[in-house]
């Protein structure tokens, strides 16, 4: 049976150590969490199904550091590795895949130039193109046919707006419609992050996760807000996600990947143990 994937996410920033994993709350206030290659090895040993590296500096200098980190990781860890952050061109995609990544995750650039998704998918194959969608709840319901109104947990109507530049800039784009568009353009997968939940430990944003999982044919990775293994369970059962991504709970030792999987298995979620 196809298992639900548990994916630790490593936000990597450039520093004098040559790359450090950090984790913030709602994309700011970063705490240091350790060396990316060491963390990747640890998570692999714990039974992580995949790994995601996000280059959150994504500057020119950051990029070459990132290439080095990807190469070192890919030499030692034999599970799928996705790399994102500042990917802006076909050449960027090529460089990162060549360094040993299996997939690239494209976020802001996809919104700015959707053709990048299409071209990258045609050249490298849909299986390695992940579109990252960061979104934020918007309860200001205007009469607009281009938005998809969902019901929040307490019954409030809201739509989800795509945000870019690490959550700093709202775009006015409806997340549900954008997700359908990137599927058409050739994305193989969607990494969905709720800005409202990121780093909060409050659990995944279920309404948008469920909506995208039901509407799309490609897999959805839920991200943002995991505080305990039960949040993963909710993401799979209520949110119908195919995979769950988490950072803080793994980095700071609250739970190991193995603990999380054992919890899920007991609750009858298919996982690889």
């Amino acid at each position: 049976m196809l298992t639900k994937r548990i994916i630790p996410c490593l936000d990597v920033t450039l520093d004098e150590a040559g790359g450090t994993v950090v984790k913030g709350i709602e994309f700011v206030d970063l705490r240091k969490a350790g060396d990316p290659v060491e963390l990747a090895k640890r998570y692999n040993e714990q039974g992580a199904d995949e790994l995601v590296f996000l280059d959150i500096t994504a500057s020119h200098e950051g990029r070459s550091t990132m290439i080095d980190v990807i190469e070192r990781t890919a030499n030692e860890v034999f599970i799928p590795l996705t790399v994102g952050g500042g990917i802006n061109s076909i050449e960027d995609v090529r460089q990162i895949l060549r360094a040993g990544a299996d997939k690239v995750s494209i976020n802001t650039s996809a919104v700015k130039k959707p053709q990048l998704i299409k071209e990258a998918s045609e050249i490298f194959g849909a299986q390695c193109i992940v579109t990252a969608i960061d979104c934020k709840r918007n309860t200001n319901i205007v009469d607009n046919p281009d938005i998809t109104i969902l019901e929040l947990e307490d019954g409030t109507p809201a739509w989800y707006e795509v945000v870019i530049y690490g959550g700093r800039q709202p775009t006015g784009i409806d997340a549900v419609q954008w997700a359908k568009k990137v599927e058409e353009l050739g994305s193989g997968e969607i990494l969905l992050t709720s800005m409202d939940r990121d780093g909060t430990y409050d659990g995944f944003d279920i309404p948008i996760t469920k909506k995208l999982s039901e509407e799309l044919e490609i897999p959805i990775i839920a991200s943002g807000g995991v505080g305990n293994p039960d949040h993963m369970y909710e993401g799979f059962v209520k949110g119908k996600a195919d995979a769950a991504l988490a950072a803080s709970i793994f980095h700071f030792g609250e739970y190991t990947v193995k603990d999380t999987k054992e919890y899920l298995k007991e609750k009858s979620i298919p996982v690889r143990l």
């Binding site: 049976m1 196809l2 298992t3 639900k4 994937r5 199904d49 849909a126 299986q127 193989g188 997968e189 044919e217 490609i218 897999p219 195919d242 995979a243 690889r272």
Partner: peptide
């Protein structure tokens, strides 16, 4: 085409 996601992606036995 079915309820199952395509691509078949992830760990299967």
């Amino acid at each position: 085409h079915s309820d199952l996601k395509v691509p078949h992606m992830g760990w299967n036995s």
